[in-house]
Computed example of a mutant assay.
Amino acid sequence: MKTDPPTQTSPTPTDLSRTELDAVARRMAEAGTPPDGPLRAVLITGGRSNLTYTLTDATSRWILRMPPRAGRTPSAHDVAREFRVTSGLWGSAVPVARPVVLCEDESLLGGAFTVVDFVDGLSVQSRDDLAALDDSQLSHLMDSLTRTLAALHRVDHVAAGLGRFGRPDAYAQRQLRRWSGQWELVAPEDREVRAAAAELARRLTVAVPEQVSTGIVHGDYRIDNTILTHGRLPEVAAVVDWELSTIGDPVADVAMMCAYRDEALDLILGAPSAWTDDRLPDVPALAAAYEAAGGVPLDHWDFHLALAYYKIGTIAAGIEHRRRAGVGSGPGFATAGHAVPRLMAAGLALGPLDG
């Protein structure tokens, strides 16, 4: 997940120069989408996540995504990954913004960048955003959210040109190994928290199930990573923020979506989020709605849900680790550490994980 909650608040002036914007326009023209005039750009999200700009030629609008200009790691901020998966999904039952161009020539903007069509819609990020929806609107929206995730997991990733997008097998083993290694780097000093995490990791290790299903995994699917249609009954107009996507076990994708319903997410984001609101279905209801929408059977559900709590707990510990090291500030940094024991406890509360 991104540790900065995405925002679309008052825009700030872009730091893209005229020379850089002209280079973007040339790449768009080469890709078959020439702007009608000089491009202007406004930064709408920034910080630790990818930078997101609105581009306009005074007639049409697009979205440009690129890594931060400084302080990024080689494997993070993979806008090319986002572009490839959405290119594979374009035209499918999964709504995404139309891909326009991927440029991996870092000499133009200081990093790779992508341009996709602008999707005009609503963004529901906060508890206040959700409060604007009445019960019938919210019910319709939740139905659309679960149907969209189920549709994603039904996509034949090989037929979509994503056969090499990620290793399809042993997803749970690889995730557990990756996040256990990350935990060792960021674990807090609190002995009780470390003991709880160690016990949860032990239980997960001995209970890793055989992978039954394989498909495209979004990795961070929640209401705040979608754009919604305008109108009386909002639906998903586009799924966004695909930087964690891969090929893996769809059950793990559903589990992450459900684990993020825990109020610990508010501590990680540093604000009351829409996704933790008690007006939304609880975890059992959300999982059942996904299966009813035609998603994959949720085999070994308790294991995948416990692994999701472990992963999110490690993410929260990483934010707290950066705070202690004095290399991070902003929403969530002062509170994320409090989410760690809650999340590890939630994983342990699931009991035996081999069912």
Rank of each mutant, 00 (worst) to 15 (best):
P11L: 08
P13Q: 07
P13M: 07
D15T: 14
L16Y: 11
L21W: 05
D22C: 00
A23P: 07
V24W: 01
A25G: 11
A25W: 06
A25Y: 10
E30A: 15
R40Q: 13
A41G: 09
L43C: 10
T45H: 13
G47W: 02
R48G: 05
S49Q: 12
T56I: 07
I63M: 10
G71N: 07
G71S: 07
H77N: 11
H77D: 03
R81P: 05
E82M: 02
V85S: 11
V85N: 11
W90K: 01
A93N: 03
V94F: 01
V96S: 08
P99S: 07
V100S: 12
V101G: 02
E104L: 04
E106K: 09
E106L: 02
G111V: 09
A112D: 05
V116W: 05
D117M: 07
D117P: 05
F118N: 00
V119N: 12
G121A: 06
G121H: 04
Q125G: 07
Q125F: 00
R127D: 00
L130E: 02
L130D: 00
A132D: 10
S136L: 03
Q137I: 00
L138R: 14
S144Q: 06
L145G: 01
T148F: 13
L149S: 08
A150K: 13
A150M: 12
L152V: 06
R154N: 11
V158I: 15
A160Q: 08
G163V: 06
G163A: 08
G166K: 03
A172D: 12
Q173H: 15
R177V: 12
R178K: 15
S180N: 15
G181R: 10
W183N: 09
L185G: 03
V186F: 02
A187P: 03
A187S: 13
P188E: 04
A198E: 15
R202C: 07
L204D: 04
T205V: 03
E210N: 03
S213A: 14
T214Y: 04
H218P: 05
H218F: 03
Y221T: 00
I223E: 01
I223Y: 09
D224E: 15
N225L: 06
I227L: 15
L228T: 08
H230R: 14
A237F: 01
V239S: 04
V240E: 00
W242L: 08
E243F: 00
L244R: 10
S245Q: 07
I247Q: 02
D249V: 08
P250S: 12
D262C: 11
L265V: 13
L265A: 12
D266E: 11
S273E: 01
S273I: 04
L280Q: 01
D282S: 12
L286T: 15
A288N: 03
Y290L: 05
Y290M: 06
A292Y: 06
G295C: 09
G295Q: 09
P297M: 09
P297Y: 06
H300Y: 02
H300G: 00
D302H: 13
D302S: 15
A308R: 04
Y310M: 03
A317R: 03
R324V: 13
G332M: 07
A334I: 06
H338L: 14
G347D: 03
G347F: 06
L348K: 10
A349H: 04
G351A: 11
P352L: 02
P352D: 13
L353H: 05
G355M: 03
G355S: 13
